[in-house]
Computed example of a mutant assay.
Amino acid sequence: MADHTAAELVARAQGEISAAALPNQFLDALERGQVPRDRLSWLAGEEYRIVDSDRRSFALLASRYPERPAGPFFLTLAEGEAEAFRLLHDFAAALGMSEKDLHVYEPRPLAQAYPAYVAQRALFGTAAEVALAMLANLEEWGSYCGRTASALRDQYGFGETAVAFFRYFAESPPGFAEQAEAVVAAGLAAGDSPEDIARAPRLLHAYETAFWDTLAAGLI
């Protein structure tokens, strides 16, 4: 993979993620109105842990790589997670879950593999690895969030305030792709391993798949 450009790594990673995509059984059930309300509390409880962890991970990356383009990129992501964390409480409130309920919720291990990997890379990995992983998986994650918001509205009667958390992630922030690719390019220029950078999106995708599979366990 020597001499690959950032654009080539992005294209390859996006192609691999697209090829690896499988049906999302949780969302399929959600769109049929077949997810019981207590399972929706799993979604809120798991995201409560994930968003808080990702916010910290992105802040750590910004501190490790403070110069442009990585520093501003990860600071923006950390700020975005903080906003998402606020919106998540509206979803939880619609389920009748308080802050205490979210805090005492017992997370499922495989549902938390995704933020654990992000935190690991934030501590031990490179900015380019995380930037490519987030970029390559963004389209699928965004589509899943859009489907979740629509299903909660159409099948469960949730209002727009309650689903705003999912709407927030359904669209990529302006300039996100360009900024992420710039971080990858900077990493390559600094001598980061293209193999390590390319591996991160595949692993992140596998861990995100585990999240959705955990939510679907026993439903089908």
Rank of each mutant, 00 (worst) to 15 (best):
A2C: 03
A2G: 08
H4F: 01
T5L: 04
T5N: 05
A7M: 01
E8Q: 15
G15N: 01
G15S: 07
I17Q: 09
S18N: 10
L22H: 14
P23H: 10
N24Q: 07
F26R: 09
L27E: 09
D28H: 12
D28S: 13
A29P: 01
E31W: 04
R32V: 00
Q34F: 02
V35D: 09
R37V: 13
R37S: 12
D38R: 14
R39N: 09
L40R: 13
L40H: 08
L40E: 04
L40G: 09
S41M: 14
L43A: 12
A44K: 09
A44Y: 05
Y48S: 13
I50M: 12
D54E: 14
R55W: 00
S57H: 01
A59N: 05
A62T: 03
A62C: 02
R64W: 04
P66N: 03
P66L: 00
P66H: 05
P66R: 02
E67L: 10
P69N: 06
P69T: 07
P69M: 01
A70M: 00
F73C: 06
F74Y: 13
T76L: 09
L77I: 06
A78R: 08
A78P: 03
E79Q: 12
A82G: 11
A84I: 03
A84T: 04
A84M: 08
F85G: 08
L87E: 10
L88E: 10
H89N: 12
D90M: 07
F91W: 09
A92L: 08
A92P: 10
A94Q: 03
E99V: 12
K100D: 14
K100M: 02
D101K: 02
D101S: 12
L102W: 05
E106L: 09
E106M: 01
E106K: 13
R108H: 13
L110I: 00
L110P: 04
L110H: 13
A111F: 03
A111I: 02
A111R: 10
A113T: 10
Y114N: 07
A116M: 07
R121E: 04
R121L: 15
A122K: 09
F124P: 04
A127W: 04
A128V: 06
A131T: 11
L132E: 07
L132F: 07
M134W: 09
L135F: 08
N137I: 00
E139A: 15
E140H: 10
W141A: 13
G142P: 05
S143M: 01
C145Q: 14
R147G: 06
T148S: 11
T148Y: 02
A149R: 11
A149Y: 03
A149P: 01
S150D: 10
S150K: 15
S150A: 15
A151N: 08
R153C: 03
R153S: 11
Q155M: 10
Q155Y: 00
F158H: 03
F158L: 11
A164G: 05
F165H: 12
F166P: 04
Y168R: 13
E171P: 00
P174Q: 11
G175V: 05
A180D: 06
V183T: 07
G187E: 12
G187P: 14
D192P: 04
D192W: 00
D196L: 11
I197Q: 03
I197C: 02
P201E: 02
L203K: 13
L203C: 10
L204K: 14
Y207D: 08
Y207T: 13
T209R: 15
W212N: 05
D213M: 06
T214M: 07
A216K: 08
A216T: 06
G218V: 11
G218N: 08
